[in-house]
Write a protein that binds this DNA or RNA. Structure first.
Lengths: 185, 185
DNA sequence: TTCTATTTGTGACATACATCACTCCAAATT
DNA sequence: AATTTGGAGTGATGTATGTCACAAATAGAA
């Protein structure tokens, strides 16, 4: 079964025809390590689903320091939702940490697909809810846990990401310096 | 116009009959300052909309320290979405910082209403997206800004909350000690 | 009004974490 | 194979912020 179909059917069940219809709204895309999907200042019109590979979304602050908002590995979605939703220029960068196979959907196609197939609206609504909950938990973790606790929670929650990306990236995601993370043990 | 109708019509437009139908799914409720809407360990089946007043959602950590997840004033929604969505016992407390007038909707009624009136599904989907975006921005602010910067951003973003709640609460929301917040200026 | 609890400010001190500088090592690039 | 780049560890030191203690001001309750 197509990995995207498997992924969607974790939320709503599909007929063969429905899935073909869904898939026709996406464009396959391959990117090499270090290539960018988006950069600060661009208009964002695409969302990506990861078939294979690993990416990160980050912002640069005034001092040029990177802060990682999100990683994305197999089965994850990635875009700048703020820019995507509000039709703004993006303030984030998304680049590949490994060679990537992606499925790309435009904002227009996403909206069309939502209207045409109610199940997809349900699917995306569910994804958004879960994303919101996860983000709230991350806020909470930043409020109440030490750097070491946050690292351990992340090891429990995303062991595959821990193994695949550099400590520098993990540190940036956890909101701690590379050196401090290195000294935790 | 009913304040809830005004609120919903910021996203989708409604007929009179539709709004009456929507409103029939809610129960009005009054609470006094210091009363709780939910406490850790309870099953959550309600979501609340604030007609008037001010509330907070917080967690207690192992040391008994409070960490404020969210404030809610007029026109805001509040519940434990994690518990609500996943059918879990809640890990949070929600209490009133002022006397409150609320509209309460049960999970069942919310789902029924979503099914019966597609516009409400759209409405809630939009709210969830915006909540997600706001939460991601809060994560980012915790990652890249100092306590003082976070305080100033909050003053710009939620001036009415700053004026209504104690510095202790603001500190707890910002992830900083009361004393540090007090020393910022 | 009187009493009590809450809020806020502030000094003294402790600590988690950041920053800078340097090194070593492995992986990628030429 | 030689060279460059990036990842990771670690010492020395600085700083933002936390913690504890106390006092003054304010608001609520009796």
């Amino acid at each position: 079964m197509h990995p995207l179909r498997r992924h969607i059917e974790e939320v709503v069940s599909l007929e063969d025809g429905e899935f073909d219809f869904i898939l026709s709204h996406f464009t396959p895309m391959n990117k090499r390590k270090h290539q960018y999907l988006m950069e600060e200042g661009e208009w964002i019109t695409n969302e990506y689903w990861v078939i294979k590979g690993c990416l990160r979304a980050y912002v640069l602050d005034e001092l040029g320091k990177e802060h990682i908002i999100q990683f994305a590995v197999e089965d994850w979605w990635i875009t700048d939702y703020q820019a995507f939703e509000k039709g703004m220029k993006t303030q984030i960068y998304v680049d590949c940490l490994e060679d990537c196979e992606l499925l790309c959907i435009t904002k227009d196609n996403r909206e069309k697909l939502s209207d045409e197939l109610h199940k997809m609206q349900q699917f995306w609504a569910r994804k958004t809810k879960l994303g919101y909950i996860a983000s709230q938990n991350r806020v909470l973790s930043l409020l109440k846990n030490t750097a070491k606790e946050r690292y351990e929670l992340m090891c429990g929650q995303y062991p595959n990401i821990i193994q695949r990306v550099s400590k520098k990236m993990i540190a940036s995601y956890l909101g701690v310096s590379r050196e401090t993370l290195s000294r935790l043990y």
